[in-house]
Amino acid sequence: MSAFLRVERLAKTYQPHKPVFQDVSFAIQRGEFVCIIGHSGCGKTTVLNILAGLDVATEGYVFMENREVAGPSLDRGVVFQGHALMPWFTVGQNIAFAVRSRWPDWDRARVHAQVEHFVALVGLGAAIDRKPSELSGGMKQRVGIARAFAIQPRLLLLDEPFGALDALTRGTIQDELMGIVRETTQTVFMITHDVDEAILLADRILLMSNGNETRAGYRPGRIAEVVDNPLPRERTRATLHHLEAYYPFRNQIVDFLVSRAKAV
């Protein structure tokens, strides 16, 4: 009962009698990195938005530190599926906007120091005065991550943060993210489509199935399986595929996605 985040029997229904998902329950411990994998449309973003307090569940509850989540909060930072930067602000201003919202009584110097620290953390020190339109997709995504980290939320929610990136950039930013998370012992809930990304980053992976029609009638989406990552926590992207447990673990997840996630 003392889990950091508890999700209990969530359901979301748009069409009557056909909930997108139902009975979604899981818990996240403090400092844990949890990934959720599932096919497009199964309801991952919806779950994340409910955790963020941006969307309301049709049924069920979310508790963070034993208090019910009833709306957005600075305690839960979100990196959105699109980067969601404000194009009229520079990189620095985007992050400063978040920092000032978190600590309204900070003076300029303190805000500036915090902004600089987190911009440097994602390696964008040189781009601090540029507008988002002058950045590449990967750089924008990094600003989004810096913005979420800069307010030091208790829970970080990431919605496919690397979805729009090429493989090379993706690898670099995954490494950065892993470094920051390990350093700050941040609790993270992340959506991804990429099996290797989940294996690299997550301590635990939730496998979500799509809602589908079966001969016995409609079956809503749900968390079909929860798998613990058997690989040592010190893993890196470069050494991942040399680890013995890597392939069986990877196959388990891919098998799920290929055969059971949409099983009739």
Binding site: A52, G53, L54, P72, S73, L74, R76, G77, V78, F80, G82, A84, M86, F97, A98, S101, R102, I151
Partner: peptide
């Protein structure tokens, strides 16, 4: 919507 969501998650006051 996404900019408003950013403002919501940052608990920005209505004036700001």
């Amino acid at each position: 919507r996404e900019w408003l969501n950013v403002a919501l998650t940052l608990e920005v006051s209505s004036m700001r």
